[in-house]
C-alpha cells in the first residue's frame, strides 16, 4: 500500500524537473512560434504598414485571400506546380531511399565508402548550393543537356530508346514517361533522399536477424522475405519518411520564394501572410490525408 502510494510521488517529484529541461524550448515556443503564428493569422486579414515607430494594422477582412487566389498573377500556378511536383517526387524518393538503404545494409566490400558517398548529398545538396547548381549552364552543357531536354542530345539519348521500348512492349504511356522522367532526374532524386536513406538504414538495422533466419529455414526467398518481413517491419518508417519528404519538398521551392518576395520586395506583408496560410493549410491537408491513408496499412509491433 505504502509502496504503491509512494512510487507515483517519486515519479512526479522527478517529473517536476522536466520543466527545467524543456524550459528553453517552452520559452522559445511561446515567444518565437505561438505568438508569431497568431500574429501572422491577424496580418493575413489586414493591411500592414511598417513605420520607424512601429507597425500599423488595418483590418481588411478576406481581401488578402481573395487577392492571392483570384487576382495574383502567379500564385495559383506556382501553388499547383509545387503540389504536383511534390506528388511526383515523394513516391520516387521514398522508394528509391528504401531501395538504397536495403543495398547499403548488405555485407559487401567497400560498404563503408559506399555509405560515405551516399550520405554526401545530405551535406551538399541543401539550400543555396542546390539552387545554384540547377541554374548553372556550363555544368549542364558539359553534362549533356541537363535540365532542358530541347537543347541537349545527351538527355534525349539517355531515355528515348528506353521510352520507345517500354511503350512498344505495351505499357501505359503515362507510366512510362513518369518512369523515364525519373531516370532523367536521378540526380535530383538522389540528392533529395539523403536523410531518408539514413532513417531507413537505421530501421533496417533494428530488425531482428532471427526473423530472417527463421524465414530462410522455412524456405522463404529473398523476395518473400522482403515483402513479408522487411516491409511490414519498416512500414512505420515509410510513414515517417513520406512525411519528411513532403515537408522537405515544401520548405524550399518557387512557392516559398514567391511568399518571401511578396513580403520583402513588394512589402505587402498582409498578402504574404495570406499566401503562406493558404500554403500551410494545403500542406496540412496533404499531410493529414497521406498520414491517414498510410497509417491504416502500417504494421506496429
Amino acid at each position: 500500500m505504502i509502496v504503491s502510494k509512494r512510487k507515483p510521488t517519486l515519479e512526479e517529484r522527478r517529473g517536476r524537473w522536466a520543466w527545467v529541461f524543456i524550459a528553453p524550448w517552452l520559452l522559445g515556443f511561446t515567444l518565437l512560434f505561438a505568438v508569431p503564428l497568431i500574429q501572422s493569422m491577424f496580418y493575413s486579414f489586414s493591411e500592414l504598414s511598417l513605420s520607424p515607430t512601429g507597425l500599423q494594422l488595418d483590418f481588411k477582412g478576406m481581401a488578402n485571400y481573395r487577392n492571392a487566389l483570384m487576382e495574383h498573377v502567379d500564385y495559383n500556378r506556382t501553388l499547383t506546380e509545387a503540389v504536383l511536383n511534390m506528388l511526383l517526387n515523394v513516391p520516387l524518393v521514398v522508394i528509391f531511399s528504401l531501395f538504397v538503404a536495403q543495398l547499403l545494409n548488405q555485407q559487401f566490400k567497400g560498404r563503408m565508402i559506399a555509405r560515405v558517398i551516399f550520405f554526401l548529398p545530405v551535406i551538399l545538396a541543401s539550400g543555396v548550393i542546390a539552387s545554384i547548381e540547377s541554374g548553372d549552364f556550363l555544368q549542364s552543357a558539359i553534362m549533356g543537356g541537363g535540365n532542358d531536354p530541347a537543347t541537349g542530345a545527351g538527355s534525349m539519348l539517355r531515355s528515348f530508346e528506353l521510352e520507345r521500348l517500354l511503350i512498344q512492349s505495351g505499357m501505359n504511356e503515362l507510366f512510362v514517361t513518369y518512369l523515364t522522367g525519373s531516370v532523367d532526374r536521378i540526380y535530383e532524386i538522389v540528392s533529395a533522399a539523403g536523410v531518408q536513406i539514413i532513417i531507413f538504414l537505421a530501421g533496417l538495422q533494428a530488425i531482428a536477424p532471427q526473423l530472417y533466419e527463421a524465414a530462410k529455414i522455412e524456405g522463404a526467398t529473398g523476395y518473400e522475405a522482403f515483402w513479408k518481413i522487411t516491409f511490414p517491419m519498416i512500414s512505420p518508417l515509410i510513414l515517417t519518411n513520406v512525411i519528411y519528404t513532403v515537408i522537405d519538398a515544401f520548405t524550399s521551392n518557387d512557392m516559398t520564394t514567391l511568399i518571401q518576395e511578396t513580403a520583402f520586395r513588394q512589402f505587402d506583408f498582409g498578402l504574404s501572410a495570406a499566401m503562406s496560410w493558404i500554403y500551410f493549410i494545403i500542406i496540412a491537408l496533404i499531410l493529414l490525408i497521406t498520414t491517414y491513408s498510410i497509417n491504416r496499412k502500417v504494421f506496429y509491433q
Partner: peptide, 11 residues
C-alpha cells in the same frame, strides 16, 4: 510541420 514562411513576417 509549419513552414517557416508562415511565421516569417511576425518573426
Amino acid at each position: 510541420l509549419v513552414p517557416p514562411q508562415t511565421i516569417m513576417v511576425p518573426t
